[in-house]
Nucleic acid binder design. Sequence first.
DNA 1: CATTAATGAGTGAACGTTCATTCTTATGTG
DNA 2: CACATAAGAATGAACGTTCACTCATTAATG
Lengths: 191, 191
Amino acid sequence: MKISDKRNDVMQAALELIADQGFHGAPMAEIAEKAGVATGTIYRYFENKEVLIRELHRELEEKISATLREGYPVERPLRERFLYLIRELLRYFITNPLHFRYMEQYFNSPYGISMHRDRLLGKSGNHDILMDIFELGIQQQVLKELPKAVLFPLAFGPLIILMRDHILGFVILDDPLIKQITEACWDTIKR
Amino acid sequence: MKISDKRNDVMQAALELIADQGFHGAPMAEIAEKAGVATGTIYRYFENKEVLIRELHRELEEKISATLREGYPVERPLRERFLYLIRELLRYFITNPLHFRYMEQYFNSPYGISMHRDRLLGKSGNHDILMDIFELGIQQQVLKELPKAVLFPLAFGPLIILMRDHILGFVILDDPLIKQITEACWDTIKR
DNA sequence: CATTAATGAGTGAACGTTCATTCTTATGTG
DNA sequence: CACATAAGAATGAACGTTCACTCATTAATG
């Protein structure tokens, strides 16, 4: 058993518990039990609960960012690049609903607020890509002349509710529907 | 002092605390202190914390619903009715940021999930209005031919992030901007 | 055998809720 | 009107529970 095995087990257990019970539905004791370790063991790997939570967030963001960059069509027209981002983000979360639920919990908590500031300042990984699209789009008069801080909510706001509804089973996001949705998102911001 | 004075004080205190600290940042003792009553007094008016929380939600929803219905232009074209709804909702929340924060907390909690089901089934007050718009719009081929459960997120999803950013001071939603935003929301769903 | 890892009972703080008691207001009586 | 009595409202200390975190002890490792 490698040194990081238990660390991973703890993170996985925390992810699952927090994703579907929230931070307060995930006591350290329960995380430990689910991970098959003792409570105290968690504190070998994470200074405290907050560190565990932030670390988990960091790791998920990393994964998502990597996925979006993977096949990103840098050379294609703006619209295509934009559609790609939205489509792949939706697909990622459909494949990894726990990740979505976790990010949602995180975002909607005291932890999330500082991150939020970063996002708008374009610090985070794949938001540079997005901000480039917005900037170029406005320059080339392809997009509406709106602040980037408005374009982002317009384009990505729907995805949050859609994902939630998908996970709850109110909608089923299959490929044809995803195609229509991504195009609708484009319509929101295109001139 | 009327019988309902303390009840109101408690609700107001709970609203303020919960809106900016979340449910877990609002212990009954603190709510009581802020309301200027003893802890035990709360339990004269509310069976327990959950009842208080739900009651608060009910009351806010009532107010919002009333506001949206107030000047609703029933006789005007679809587009105009739709723009009205979005614009007034934004305005309401800009005027009452605590209400927005509270509803967000509520929505993003175990309590919120049952409500969510109601919303999609069209039980809640002003959603009948909205569903009518969607239904008519599809019939008249004004709107995209998408499930109502998709039209709703597309049209209203942006508002949540926009409101959050507005409250955090990242955007300032003034009237010209609101006009552009509501029209962008319409562009998302119009054919 | 020395060092590191893992354990889980224990600790104290925080929380929602209760309830014996006190204070306030309303009602009855002469 | 003065006073006694009853009813209702308000109080806050106390209770039981939950939780994050600690630490003395045990197990594993090389």
